[in-house]
Amino acid sequence: MFKHFIIISSTFVLLLANEPISPIPQTVKYNQAKALLGKRLFYDTLLSKDNTVACVVCHNLSSGGADARKVSQGVYGRLGNIQSPTVYNARYNFKQFWNGRANNLKEQAKEALENPNEHDMNPQLIEQRLNASTSYKKLFYKVYHTKKITFNETIDAISEFEKALITPNAKFDKYLRGESSLNHQEKDGYILFKQYGCITCHNGINIGGNSFQKMGTFFPYKTKASYPDRAEILKNKKYHNVFKVPTLRNIALTSPYFHDGSSKTLLQAVKKMAYYNLGIDIPDDDAQKIVAFLKTLTGEKPKIVEAP
């Protein structure tokens, strides 16, 4: 009996060797002038063909940086095929988009601008529109010292703004730094989060966003969504239903959940994950505790968003 206990505890000692989550830094370095210009572009519908869509429409910075709708709506009311992931802390994702087809923020922004169901623009049209605006010309001249605005500078400014979009000082980050403590439920939730193995995929600074994993390891996940998974990107059936692990930061603010937006509440989402990726019906009590933990991951909005 004692021997077995040792086995289990030795296993746990091994398992708990590293703290797998690290807090968001208080500040990050970025070019203030570029970021402010990027912010203006981020909010400007000029960057969509019919002047109805801005980046911020689907990445709502006043809530979680994501879209409350199941799928986003682009120009001319065209619907997308994916639930917009949050732009907050996106700089910490190792790839962008649910299926990771963009290597960085710039590639993501370019694709979103050129996607016919999103902004439906092209570089020439963007340059044409921006160069027609005297106020943009002035701003770009100030930042880039060029008389003619280029598409690359536009993307550069937007990505610089996105680099500034971090949400530090979440309750959990403060806990990790020893500045504050979690209540019983939250703390139990964190332990369960680790014990159920959620941590094996949701780890690192973004509590996710650093690997591709399969949705539905125990039971095949079925969805109506037509969004291409990693299998289509890599042309390999082995990666069916493999997506980028989403960040859990500010997760309480980014309902609905999953790439198909199939869960409206966190509780549902936790239960769904337990079913598909652990093969269990998670006890309600445990799920509630995990949700309580997840709610401690909401951070402060960056100052650049609040600034006029």
Binding site: E19, P20, F94, T200, N203, G204, N206, N210
Partner: peptide
């Protein structure tokens, strides 16, 4: 390690690419 941040792995992966 069971509990391990994959951030470093991800950035090294990017680095190789």
């Amino acid at each position: 390690y069971a509990y391990n941040s994959q951030d470093k792995l991800a950035s090294d992966y990017d680095g190789v690419q």
